[in-house]
Nucleic acid binder design. Structure first.
Lengths: 176, 176
DNA sequence: TATTGTTATACTCTATAACTATA
DNA sequence: TATAGTTATAGAGTATAACAATA
């Protein structure tokens, strides 16, 4: 249950962790009525995979001075039909607070990657727009992003990707 | 590419996000040579699922004043054969920096959930041990934790869990 | 010299609450 | 009244670098 951006992990220490800690979790789990190892193992694997994924993409992004949160905002701004977004809409798309969006947009503006325009139809609101500089940066990064995604899944058959998507969807639907 | 603990998301706004944003990502993706929608969709689904998972378990843990990081340390401390861990070992198991472990152990000690003992064989090191209070807290929480894991996967057949584990392992192995 | 842990510092990402301006 | 955004504040979780003590 961890989200870390470290790159300090050698794969051997990772394996050691899995071998030792997972074994312990499995052994101790027998004490609990509801413990189901196949389920717990999937969960541990899932979190472990997420951690690795974040390390990988954070590193890839940092070469372009992007962070995951900034990347997400930039993606939203560059993929709209109108290309102008009220901060409240960004907040809804990102599922984060309005205050958080203020900070994220400030960071984008500070870097010259986005700008605020007043909304003629609502003087309380800002319309946030990606700048040419922001677009250039994102477009420079994305080929590497998608290449990496492709590389990661290069060992998967189409049916496996579909199957994994279905299983994840089922997993997600089970969560709430 | 997001890790947030919000609980503000209604499932309808989440669906809206998926419907709108994912569609845009797919449309725009055609511009990129390496873009492979089945792969990208799995990735988006994976991150979306992780977000939901963290919201769920963070909420479950917070009822016991636990956080994911604290939970992880407590699990390590309670699942050892000797039950005493050098901070450096915790750092290796958790894949985080030694400085981070200092802070985490401080937090545990402050709450009375763990204590430090001097290591007779190495005067530089501490041996960290879970306290009875820490054990009681963890054991009070774990049944709910495992029950929730079981509930989430209650719609899965054993073969599906195994299949998902295999796919995640393949995914993870593709990462680096 | 190398290792263990601490301290100092900083960064990213997030939240809530109180506020202003406007609808 | 309700909504859009800001500010102030906080907190979790992470890192690096310099350091002291010990191996």
């Amino acid at each position: 249950m961890k989200n870390q951006m470290t790159s300090s992990a050698s794969s051997s220490s990772k394996d050691l962790r899995t071998d030792y800690y997972w074994t312990q979790v499995r052994e101790f789990g027998r004490k609990y009525k509801n413990f189901d190892w196949p389920s717990v193992r999937v969960l541990l694997r899932f979190i472990d995979t997420y951690d690795g994924l974040m390390v990988r993409f954070s590193k890839l992004m940092s070469a372009y001075k992007l962070s995951p949160a900034v990347f997400n905002v930039l993606m939203i701004l560059s993929r709209g039909s109108g290309e102008k977004f009220k901060q409240h809409d960004i907040s809804k798309l990102l599922l984060v607070s309005r205050a958080n969006v203020t900070g994220l947009v400030n960071a984008l503006v500070r870097k010259g990657l986005a700008k605020r325009e007043s909304d003629p139809t609502d003087r309380r609101a800002w319309l946030v727009k990606i700048t040419p500089k922001g677009k250039v940066l994102l477009e420079a990064y994305l080929p590497y992003h998608y290449a990496e995604v492709g590389r990661i899944f290069s060992g998967f058959k189409l049916a496996e990707k579909k199957s994994m998507d279905q299983l994840l969807l089922k997993f997600k639907d089970g969560i709430l």
